[in-house]
Simulated assay, not measured.
Amino acid sequence: MKPFFSVIIPVYNKGRYLDRAVKSALNQSYADLELILIDDASSDESSDISRGYKDERVRRFRRMRPGPGGYAARNLGISLARGKWVCFLDADDEWLQDHLAIVRKAVKEHPGCQGVSTGSYLQKEQSWVADNYVRKHFESHVFELCEYLQARLKGLELITTNTIALKRNFLTEGSLFPEGSALRGGDEATWLKLFLQGMKMVRLPVPTAVYHLDADNMVTAKISNATGKHPVLSRVESVLPQLDDREVKRLLCRFANRKTIAWARVIKESKGIPLAQLKRLNFQGLDMYCVFAAMAMLFLPGLVFKQLIGGVKSQFWTRRFF
């Protein structure tokens, strides 16, 4: 009998944390699941740890070459999934025990939705901080494309890979995540792709996942990872010619501009004026945030800019990981 959930965990050199993630999935109060471990050509003890699980719900697969961001591993997991709904969990994070039970209940209560997303905690040392959506909202809400874009432009964190569940028969043929074309930023482009396909997603105001802010748990802000076009910009540019709704086009352009500014900031903090990124800004989507950020990058010295951004980042713990 096919399970209700397929849980996909990409694994690349996460031996130090893997057992925590796997046990948090296998010990769920709602147990109708299969756990798909995709070893992304790990060179540490991750493979040995994966082979040690005897639970019959665990399925193991290994890729011969690692894929940046875990995108290729997730895509392989989706192609192998047998469950009605697909979930993801990073190998260095964890779920609270009732995560899948809460998602299953939401699936029953919102039969017209193809996605369910819960909240999460950011954990560092002894500090646990709920995401900003959880802190500001007390009821579930169904999002479609425009509302999703408006919420993201306000800085609300609606989806992470650890919190999203997707109806498998809604996922189209081919790669869901942008493997081979992005080193980072691909998750956000993937959620946008699904909303553009007509996804309805219910966001629950309940934190059920824990994002551990360990030193080797984060996608680093390397210049090499912020070159070229942000995957969101590439996605927006590919769909704009097909759209007639001017408001949707404006929101998409604003959203793409925000992501372009984020990459430009990485370059500015590291080595100078990010002209190549700033030239990608779409005038149709310019707002005061983008204008101010672009002017600061162009005219402020690097040290002054970093100090200014440092003041913004000091609100990190109260505004969520923006």
Rank of each mutant, 00 (worst) to 15 (best):
P3N: 09
G15N: 07
D19R: 09
R20L: 15
A21I: 12
K23Q: 14
N27C: 13
D32S: 11
I38V: 14
A41T: 03
E45W: 06
S46I: 05
S46L: 12
D48T: 06
D55R: 02
E56F: 07
R60N: 13
F61A: 11
G67H: 12
P68I: 04
Y71H: 11
I78K: 11
V86A: 01
W95H: 13
H99F: 07
P111A: 10
Y121S: 06
Q123H: 08
E125G: 11
V129W: 04
Y133H: 14
S140V: 09
H141P: 00
H141V: 07
H141Q: 06
V142H: 14
Q150R: 15
L153F: 09
L156A: 10
N162W: 02
N162K: 09
L171F: 02
T172Y: 08
P178I: 15
S181A: 14
A182W: 08
L183Q: 14
G185K: 13
D187Q: 02
E188T: 08
K193F: 10
L194P: 09
F195R: 07
L196T: 11
M201V: 02
V202I: 10
R203W: 00
L204A: 00
H212P: 05
H212I: 11
D214G: 15
K222Y: 05
V232H: 07
L233C: 11
S234A: 04
R235G: 03
V236T: 05
V236G: 10
P241R: 06
L252T: 10
R258C: 01
K271Y: 08
I273T: 05
L278C: 09
K279H: 01
R280Y: 03
Q284R: 13
M288Y: 02
V291W: 01
F292P: 00
M295A: 15
M295I: 14
L298D: 04
G302S: 08
L303G: 05
G310W: 14
K313F: 11
S314R: 15
Q315T: 12
F321H: 08
